[in-house]
Amino acid sequence: MKDHYHKELEAYQVSVGGYSRFAITMLRDAFDAFSSLDRELACEIAGGMENFCIQTDEPAMHQEIRVPRKVFLSLRSDQLEEQGLKLIALHQPVAYDLRTISCCMNLISSAERIGRYGKDICHCTYKLPEGIHIRGMARLPEMAEGALSMLEDSLHAFQTRDLSILEGFSSRDDVIDELRYLIYEDCISIMEEDPRTIPYCATYLLVDRYLERCADHACKTAEKIHYMITGERVDIR
């Protein structure tokens, strides 16, 4: 039999997991929007270019008001943080319960960062003309897949409390770091070859950086999850 407080704590973890899922999806969709230079999708995520991207024949008052995902991202982060603080204030959790709430708080702020990188990637989409990318986007798709799979796995470990999922995280992060450097070098030489590629490569360098940061968040989250479960600190990156 679980008491009310422990049920609430479990529900809280589910909500935080859901928020994290929302942020990862936001990043994934943002990268898809960028890959396909789909401004409408980018706009649905990041807003800010409504006049430019939402086209409709409906008269203005019949238009559906769409709130970009970035708005929800930031509202929900505050809500969840307050719920966590409330649990601490009302129940003075200790031991595993305390470590869980602390981990949730970390997950919330990481998720918000990740979502915001998604938003930044959408802004990169606006900067490029509609159409197609150059040079297969350097190796960004590969990098995005690597970073997203680390984020997915850290969320999965949080939800299942299965630490084995986190094994190999530091070498996976090494791969990302290496890619980041390779993409950087590639972009420089592409730009040197042909200055007309500069608008593309410049955004690639930004996205390169955002994705590397996301993988870093996955590693930090993994460390927090490890601490939540075992009470021991580990250094993944």
């Binding site: 422990h6 200790v94 031991a95 470590r99 009470g231």
Partner: peptide, 17 residues
Amino acid sequence: IFEKPKEELTENYITGR
């Protein structure tokens, strides 16, 4: 004891389980 007790019994007691 209150952040990362080693024994499960302690954990269960202090977390009210």
